[in-house]
Design a protein around this nucleic acid. Structure first.
Lengths: 112, 112
DNA sequence: CAGCGCGCTACCGATACAGTAGCATGCTAC
DNA sequence: GTAGCATGCTACTGTATCGGTAGCGCGCTG
């Protein structure tokens, strides 16, 4: 799958609205989970796969994990470092924006 | 596809962390786009499908739109009203949380 | 240099998604 | 009152994405 660039988004959208490109990227499986996990600090490929991460209760397939990491790197949200993968400054900014979803999700859970 | 209940999330996750259930729900195609669109006011099925919405640059398949609306209704984020579909109070809360992504996505777009 | 752990790729079956067609219902016009 | 017509949705058929397992290459260890 190609890169969801804000100017020329993929997967159907033709407007080019950056927010749609973002939804396109974050709408992929595990994308937000990976960002969430990396926000706690850099992690290795294996660590991201394991169920002991900050959220994941399940091992992610290596193939899909690799694909998502490539997506996120192309989006400049994640970088490879010596000790695995970590968030870029941009990625950390994004995390601060989605972080409030955590407390809200608790309320949401109660409401269901 | 079953409902992503916070207690018993679907699609692989086994932890039950509400945030993961939320990621699971929002990680589906068009889910955030629909919420975004409905935040501007109630819309009919046809209106949500059309490319003239607040973001969509492309018509969504009726089958997938229907599936997503069902998901969001089960999650109590969207309700059917007389004049189509609209956000629940919960849905509006969620929108206020994801709204900041819009200005950020502009910066992100420039950075790419 | 055999063994091991890690990072990843290749493959294949299972879902989810996209696109088109078409049906049911309600409204309008004649 | 029936012939259109638009709306809301379902059915069907491909295609893309995802999930799961196997296994390869590489560096390190003994």
């Amino acid at each position: 799958m190609s890169i969801p660039k804000p100017g020329q988004p993929v997967r159907g959208s033709t407007t080019g609205a950056p927010i749609m490109a973002l939804f396109d990227l974050l709408g992929r499986r595990w994308a937000m989970g990976i960002i969430w996990n990396l926000a706690a600090g850099p992690a290795t490929f294996r660590a991201l796969q394991s169920p002991t991460g900050r959220i994941q209760g399940k091992t992610i397939s290596p193939s899909i994990l690799n694909a998502r990491l490539k997506d996120l790197q192309e989006a400049k949200l994640v970088v490879r470092t010596l000790d695995g993968y970590g968030l870029t400054p941009l990625g950390r900014q994004l995390f601060t924006l989605i972080e409030p979803l955590d407390p809200w999700s608790l309320e949401w859970g109660k409401a269901l």
